[in-house]
Structures are given as structure tokens and as C-alpha cells.
Simulated assay, not measured.
Amino acid sequence: MSWSVGQVSGYAGVTVRTLHHYDRSGLLSPSDRSPAGYRRYSSTDLARLQQILFYRELGFPLDEIATILADPQANALDHLRARREALSEQITRLQKLVEVAERAIEVQRTGVELTPDERFEVFGDVVFDLSYATDAHLKWGEQEGHQQALARAASHSKEDWRQLMAEAAAWRHRLLAAFAEDAAPDSARVRDLAEEHRQHIGRWFTPCSPEMHCRIADDYEADARAFALVVPPADQRPGLAAYLRTAIGANARRITGGDATDCGTTDHGTTAHPEDAR
């Protein structure tokens, strides 16, 4: 007994086009043809199609399915184990994305409601990139400092935001002036600016150790989205992120008596928070 491509399409819940593609690629070629040249599928073909659809449901690409089915003696267990691991990682990532969405909903419910005009008045040209906030939460959402920064940011009033943003803007003006005047990043003047930045983070968001400050500085140089939280793109200059990172490293060494790890060599176990010290 054999079945037409239309019948198989109906039975299996796949399109005729998909079956034609499987045929052209050699993944599933019907065993027979009708006198008029139409595809006819045998029970063996249907069993193979069932295997293909099983692996497709698990997310295997077609070329890997072809490899698994090419050798009847091949052990598919290794492929299935690898796929299980990949699916587990995907599930973990999706669960964290759900947490990000829930956090965003919570912030929207408990945060300060601002009109577009008020938002511009408070934040000006500082850029908030949701993709960066999402990536940061996926990487460091379990860390106490990150959670505390988000919680404190959500608790700030509109007047709090005005004050902290004014502080950040004044600090940024002095940083840009030092950079324009070629002040050495490890000079006392610029180290003091780095320390002021660290104190600002601790005052408004979360305690910031010199090591944590270095990790934040690494993020500023490595990710333009993070640096845009500190210096709006319109105010940025080539080399400014590296300049600030060097200053923060020099300040960390000053605080620890030279024992602090230089910025750029630490493992990013802590991130610049989406709200830190604009």
C-alpha cells in the first residue's frame, strides 16, 4: 500500500512543499512513483518521516537529522543528549527573560511616572538601552548588588532623579574638561573624579567597592550601551571610555594601597547597573 504526497501531508501535518523539499534534499525520497510520475510513499517512508518530525520537534537541523538517519547502526543517543543540554540552556535563558519582563512590569508599577517632557527634563540626552538592561540582568541578575540597584532605582522619586542626574551632569562636565585639557588619567584631579563617580553609585544605587568599580569601568569601555548611561553619545569623544577606565583603575589602586586589580583584568562578576551614575 502507498500514499500520495497530499495524503501524507494531511496525515503528518506538514505541507506538500515541505515534503517536496525533503525529497529534493535526499532526506526523504518516496519509494515509488505513480504511472503519471506522482510521488507515492510506502509505510517505510512514513516511518522515516515520523523519525524526521520527531527530531525536528526537538530542534535538530535537517543536516544533522540526515547524519543520524544515514547510518542505521549509528547511536543517536549522543545527539539526543547534546540536544537535551542545548534545550535546557534555552529553557534557562527563557526563564530569565521572563524574570526580566516581570522586573520591567514591577518597575513600571512602582517606579516614577513621567510624561515625555518630564522624562527629557530629568534624563536629558542620557540613553537607556533596554537590550543592555536585559543582557545585564541575564548575566548578573542573581547578584545582590544588581538587585539592590534595581530596587533603589525603582524607589527614587522624581525629585531624587532630578538631583542625582544633576550631580551626574556636573561630574560629566568636569570629566570632559579634564579629558579636553589632557589631564593624565592617573593624576590626582582625575582620580578624584573617579572616586566621586564611585561614591555617586554607592549613594544612589548600591555600595561600590574598588573592585566592583573596575568591573563597571570595564563594561563602559567594552559596551557602548553601558557607556551611554554615563556620557550621552553626543558628548562622547574617541578614547574617553578608556580614559575613564584608566582613571578608575588608578583610583582603585590608591584606595587599596596598590593591591587592587587593574581594570580590564577582572572577571565581570558584577556589572554596571542600568541606572548607575549617569
Rank of each mutant, 00 (worst) to 15 (best):
I216G: 01
E57R: 09
D276S: 14
A228Y: 09
Q90M: 11
C208N: 10
R203Q: 14
E221Q: 10
D192C: 03
T256P: 07
L87Q: 12
D63W: 05
E181G: 01
Y38Q: 11
T92L: 08
L164V: 12
A247L: 06
A177I: 02
A183P: 00
V231A: 08
P72R: 08
D219H: 05
Y22T: 12
W204G: 06
C214L: 07
D235A: 02
E195Y: 02
R81T: 12
A188P: 00
Y38A: 10
L62Y: 03
A86C: 03
E99R: 14
R81F: 10
S29M: 12
H21E: 05
I91C: 04
T44N: 08
V127S: 07
E118S: 13
Y220H: 09
A154S: 15
A180L: 01
A101V: 15
W3I: 02
A228P: 07
H137M: 15
T206I: 04
Q143M: 07
T265Q: 11
L176F: 02
V5M: 13
Q51D: 15
G239T: 03
S43D: 12
A250M: 06
G202M: 01
H273S: 13
I255V: 13
A12I: 07
E144T: 11
P238K: 03
Y38T: 01
P274M: 08
R119Y: 15
G145A: 09
D63P: 07
P207F: 05
S131D: 08
L229I: 09
A149G: 11
H197Q: 10
R245H: 03
E167I: 02
A136K: 11
R39K: 06
Q236N: 01
Q147I: 07
F60P: 04
Y55D: 13
I52F: 11
G258T: 05
I68M: 13
T270R: 15
F205G: 06
L176A: 00
V100Y: 15
Y132A: 13
D63C: 07
E167F: 01
R119M: 12
